[in-house]
Simulated scan of single mutants.
Amino acid sequence: MKPRTSRASSQALDHLNLVAKLADLKEDHYRALLTLSAITELLIEKGLLAPEELERKIASLDSEMDELIAFSLHPMP
């Protein structure tokens, strides 16, 4: 059996590693969102995409995701 201080140190290190992983994910998420925003703005500025088209597509994809989630939570027998 490990001494109590060793177990506490191990748990603290595990917690620290988890926090570091979350920080990395947050940074990755920020970079991906920034890139997506820049691409979207460029497409709109160049007239290749209308804001209304984007909103319709977002609503459509959101609805599809809601349906998939609902189906996965309550599959047909």
Rank of each mutant, 00 (worst) to 15 (best):
K2Y: 06
P3W: 13
P3G: 09
R4V: 01
T5C: 12
T5A: 13
A8G: 00
A8T: 09
S9M: 12
S10N: 11
S10R: 14
S10A: 14
Q11G: 03
Q11N: 08
L13W: 05
D14K: 10
D14Q: 13
H15I: 07
H15P: 05
L16K: 09
L16P: 00
N17A: 15
N17L: 14
N17Y: 11
V19D: 13
V19K: 14
A20E: 13
A20D: 11
K21I: 06
K21Y: 03
K21E: 12
L22I: 06
A23W: 02
A23Q: 08
D24N: 14
K26V: 02
K26M: 09
K26E: 15
E27G: 02
D28Q: 13
H29D: 05
H29E: 15
H29C: 11
H29A: 13
Y30P: 00
R31D: 12
R31M: 11
A32T: 04
L33W: 04
L34D: 14
L34V: 01
T35D: 15
T35V: 07
T35W: 07
L36D: 15
S37A: 11
S37R: 14
A38K: 09
I39Y: 09
I39P: 03
T40P: 00
E41V: 10
L42I: 06
L42D: 15
L43P: 01
L43N: 12
E45M: 08
K46M: 11
G47P: 02
G47V: 03
L49Q: 06
L49V: 05
L49M: 10
A50P: 00
P51A: 01
E52K: 09
E53R: 02
E53Y: 01
E55D: 14
E55S: 14
E55M: 10
E55G: 07
K57Y: 05
I58N: 01
I58G: 00
A59H: 05
L61M: 06
D62P: 02
D66T: 05
D66P: 01
D66I: 03
D66E: 15
E67A: 15
E67Q: 13
I69E: 13
I69N: 03
I69G: 03
I69P: 05
F71H: 08
L73F: 05
L73Y: 03
L73G: 05
H74M: 04
P75D: 00
P75C: 00
P75W: 01
M76T: 07
M76R: 04
P77I: 00
P77W: 02
